[in-house]
């Protein structure tokens, strides 16, 4: 009974419709920001990076919002291009990671032994610091884009795999699946027609939640010098270079690229969490 009374707590201050509006607003603002960024990135992609020795080391101004570097390159263009690259790698790695997670999650739900093997694999991958594993994988693959891509993909799947596993197990027990099974449909058919549509929202949210981590880790390894090569305009590279000019007071070389990365990552994170709350209001909280 007292429990009942407490359901009124959920009425508190925000009703369902107001909360939905908030969620919409948050999604809309994030989408707007990402759109702005996309436009910026498109614009930047068309701009050649010019080295102009007369325009070296300029602090931010109306003409050069993010300032220029020691070769006179426009930092705004470099940042946008770098972000775009980081984002592409992060997205690709996140999607690969989600694919691994789905595969292993569904596999784990298929039988006792498969489950044991998969949970042991999860243990294995969770038992090493992500970054060390990333460095190791990058090293093994000889660095470069593929190193980062595989490194990030191979390190970020465990938590989503767990979700998919639990969800699949639950689905298998569900009434309609059982009925379909009794009607003689095989698992493959059921998986495609009945399970996938239910797993899809989880998968989408899971992938969205992996992406921010993937981007941050990509930037991290690249910063350490083990990711994308120094010729590529990645954010990690830009920030690593900026370290050399810190003592000369060129703060803008580090501040803006990093801040932009932070904002983009925060956008993805926000989007992921909002959608998570949407698809699954019970488990939503974190």
């Amino acid at each position: 009974m007292i429990r009942k009374a407490h359901t009124f707590l959920s009425f508190r201050s925000t009703s369902w419709s107001a909360r939905r509006l908030q969620a919409w607003l948050s999604v809309a603002s994030v989408a707007l920001l990402l759109l702005l960024f996309a436009i910026g990135a498109l614009w930047a992609a068309g701009q050649p990076i010019v080295t102009a020795l007369t325009l070296r080391n300029l602090p931010p101004s109306a003409a050069y919002w993010f300032g220029t570097d020691w070769l006179g390159r426009d930092m705004l263009i470099r940042t946008l291009q770098g972000l775009q690259l980081s984002l592409q790698v992060g997205l690709a790695a996140g999607i690969m990671s989600a694919a691994i997670a789905t595969l292993l999650g569904v596999l784990a739900a298929s039988g006792k032994w498969a489950d044991r093997v998969v949970s042991w694999l999860i243990d294995l991958f969770l038992s090493m610091p992500h970054l060390v594993l990333l460095i190791l994988i990058s090293f093994i693959l000889g660095g470069g884009v593929q190193g980062v891509l595989f490194g990030v993909a191979l390190t970020h799947w465990p938590s989503l795999a767990r979700v998919i596993r639990a969800e699949t197990l639950q689905l298998r027990q569900a009434e309609f699946i059982q009925v379909s099974r009794r009607m003689g449909n095989n698992w493959l058919w059921i998986g495609w027609h009945h399970m996938l549509p239910h797993l899809l929202p989880q998968l989408l949210v899971g992938t969205l939640l992996i992406i921010p981590h993937a981007i941050l880790h990509e930037a991290g390894v690249t910063f350490l010098g083990m990711g994308l090569s120094a010729q590529q305009p990645a954010i990690g590279i830009i920030l690593a270079e900026s370290m050399r000019y810190l003592s000369t007071g060129m703060w803008w070389l580090a501040l803006f690229p990093g801040l932009s990365l932070l904002i983009i990552v925060r956008c993805f994170d926000r989007l992921g969490h909002t959608l998570q709350r949407w698809t699954d209001p019970h488990r939503a909280r974190n």
């Binding site: 941050l216 930037a219 370290m243 990093g258 932070l262 990552v265």
Partner: peptide
């Protein structure tokens, strides 16, 4: 939430 999205090495640089 913002800290969770912050690249730690950038924070270090700042």
């Amino acid at each position: 939430y913002t800290l969770a999205s912050t690249p730690s090495f950038w924070l270090a640089i700042m």
